[in-house]
Design a protein around this nucleic acid. Sequence first.
DNA 1: TTTGAAGTTGAAAGCCGGTTCAACTTTCAT
DNA 2: ATGAAAGTTGAACCGGCTTTCAACTTCAAA
Lengths: 204, 204
Amino acid sequence: MTAGAPAKDDKTPRTARGERTRRALLSAAAEEFGEKGFHDGSISGITRRAGCALGSFYTYFDSKDDIFRALVNDMSGQVRDYVSPRIAQARDGIDAERIGLLSFLEFARAHKEIYRIIDEAEFVDQAAYRAHYENTASRMAARLAKAAARGDVRADVEDVHAWAIMGMNVFLGLRYGVWDDSRPAEEIAAIANALVERGIGRAD
Amino acid sequence: MTAGAPAKDDKTPRTARGERTRRALLSAAAEEFGEKGFHDGSISGITRRAGCALGSFYTYFDSKDDIFRALVNDMSGQVRDYVSPRIAQARDGIDAERIGLLSFLEFARAHKEIYRIIDEAEFVDQAAYRAHYENTASRMAARLAKAAARGDVRADVEDVHAWAIMGMNVFLGLRYGVWDDSRPAEEIAAIANALVERGIGRAD
DNA sequence: TTTGAAGTTGAAAGCCGGTTCAACTTTCAT
DNA sequence: ATGAAAGTTGAACCGGCTTTCAACTTCAAA
């Protein structure tokens, strides 16, 4: 077997035209669900935006849930693919986390629908929701472990730190990326990074 | 005028019996929405749990949205009322945040439905969702400002720190409160609090 | 004891959107 | 060129859920 899915009746497009329609549906779904949320968004809304007939939807997706699942994976991958290469440029372990937040803020500002899509996965497809955050956290934990080995950060870093910093990033992205993007992303990232590096305890 | 609402047709119970039914509906709704989420949860599910007839629901609430809004306010208040008095016992500004997270973890472990309810407000009632987090963040920012004045924390603390720490708390509550509560809450709170106080930068 | 306001009941109206389907069009390998 | 596979179409089906409503019951004040 080549692909991961068993595929009783395969909905993969076989044609360039089919591929185009599938992509159109997927990005129409990002708009529709981003604006209205999963439940208020409708399949007819998606096909209208995509410029195709209602029935065509079912050529490529089994159900409303199915396209949503595909969309969550897609967005999750997009964030990762935007952030990862930037982090690779960092000078050290602490700087890596600064760049991680900075680029996440940039991404959130450019794709404000991301929260409405990822967050709603908690209700539509819990597995995808948990997978998204568990993957993100374990990538971060791995970076921190390497940084610890290099001596960039304390030796006792563990998963709890990764979840803490990820939570920080998510909420800063919501507040200073999606809800209000008037402050420079660099400034937010710098403040948060100082917190991660030295904390806010009295410097004595 | 006494109350805040104009109340064209007032649904406030006038009777002890009415009050009891309303409370029963509200806590049934917490169960129903906590288990199934807003959209999969049904009003008949709520009235079944509450042990009353479908029609009685509309004696106290205008709509499904209406009871959800009431529920979000209720839960938001419950967290605040659980956490606030505990924080007041803290020895200093840093300890206050440790206790804040600790008691939030305890609360989340005892009320695992809280995430499904607050988070879904993002889609059902954005205003309530933002209000919840903005209130929480500004209470924290006020505490931090006081702590700064007292010299417990750096003088330059601001809203960004509050949002960062709140995000930390929310994600630690999800991961180590709701999803897996096998580690002692004190341990999680201590690790996160050390991050807040001194950061994870190399101690040099 | 009477009375009417408050509360209860559950059947059914009404709505809405996901999904199906059979006829039709386009594509492309041969 | 041609036929079979791939893709398109949108009306209609379908089931579920919110909301309404008019008859009925409870309760407490007069």
